[in-house]
Design a protein around this nucleic acid. Structure first.
Lengths: 153, 153
DNA sequence: TATGAAATAATATAGTT
DNA sequence: AACTATATTATTTCATA
C-alpha cells in the first residue's frame, strides 16, 4: 500500500512530536481525529512506524563523547564475522554498526562517558574481539545536525 | 538533579516503547502511576527527555540507501564553515553531520532512494558546496545493529 | 519530599451515518 | 470521513509515610 499525502503529513507531524494528541495531529493535517487514529494504527500494522522512542540528551545521561570507529577484520570467514557481530550486539556502548564499502569493513558508532572510557571501549573491548585487525577512531567534536528524522518527499 | 534508579528504569522502559501507558510503565518499575507520571514530566522539564519520535522503516519510505560521507574543506575560514553548515542544514537527505577529528573535517550521514540518487546528492549537492575540497563516500551494505537507544548503566 | 488511591480531566477508539 | 458515544488513559487532589 503506497502512502498518500495524509499519511506523509501525519508521519511528518509525529516526527516533530510522537506524543501529540491525535486531535491536534488531525487539526494539523486538516482531518478529524478518527481517520488520523485509524491511519496511525494502519501505519503501525504495516510496519512503516515500527515503534516510538524518547529523544534523550546523552550528556545529561553522562555520555559526553561520541565516536565513529572504522574496523577491519583480518579474515572474512563466517566464524570471524559471526563472532565480531555478536560482540558488537553485546556491547551496550555500541549504538550502531554497519558493514560498509571502502577499505574498512565496519563503521561502528560508539558513545562513551569520557576520553578514558572511549579509549577503554576501543582498546579493551573492540580491538580485542578475535579477528579484528585494525581500528581507526573518528571522534565527534561537534554535532552540526542530528534531527533524527527522515525526509518524506 | 542526578537520576535515581526509578528514573533510569522509567527511561529504559520508554526506550522500548515511548507510548506505553503510564500504568503499565508503573507496573514494570514497581511504582504506581502517579509518581511515574510526575517523574516523566520532570525528566521532560529538565531536558533529559527532549521529545518523542516514531521509529520509521526507511525502506518503506522509499529510502533504500544509507551512506556516510567524509568531507574536507579547502579553507577553514568562518565564512566557509558557516556556508557549509548552512548547506548541510538545508539538505533534507543529510540526516546527521558532525565535525570530527582525523584527516577529514566532517562526517555526514546521508539517506537516499537509490544509487543514482545518492550519487546526485554527493556530486551535485555536497561536492558543489563552496569550500568543499574532498569527499569520500562510505556506503552502508548492511546494518548489524541500530537500536536507537542509549546505555543507561 | 515522595508515594498510593481515588476522582476528575483528557484523550483515543468504536459504532453509526 | 465525520459525528457521537464509549472506553481508555493521564493527571490532579488528597491523605499518608
Amino acid at each position: 500500500m503506497p502512502l498518500d499525502e495524509f499519511d506523509r503529513a501525519i508521519i511528518a507531524v509525529l516526527q516533530e512530536d510522537a506524543r501529540m494528541p491525535v486531535a491536534q495531529v488531525a487539526e494539523r493535517v486538516s482531518l478529524s481525529a478518527t481517520p488520523v487514529s485509524r491511519r496511525i494504527k494502519r501505519l503501525e500494522e504495516e510496519g512503516i512506524i515500527t515503534g516510538y522512542q524518547p529523544v534523550l540528551d546523552p550528556r545529561r545521561l553522562g555520555l559526553e563523547l561520541d565516536a565513529y570507529v572504522l574496523i577491519n577484520l583480518d579474515a572474512h570467514s563466517d566464524a570471524n564475522i559471526e563472532r565480531f557481530e555478536q560482540a558488537i550486539l553485546d556491547s551496550p556502548y555500541v549504538i550502531a554498526c554497519h558493514a560498509v564499502t571502502g577499505d574498512m569493513d565496519y563503521l561502528v558508532h560508539v558513545v562513551a562517558r569520557d576520553v578514558e572510557h572511549l579509549s577503554q571501549i576501543t582498546l579493551k573491548s573492540l580491538l580485542r574481539i578475535p579477528g579484528v585487525r585494525d581500528v581507526k577512531s573518528i571522534i565527534v567534536l561537534e554535532t552540526v545536525k542530528a534531527p533524527r528524522t527522515l525526509p518524506l518527499d
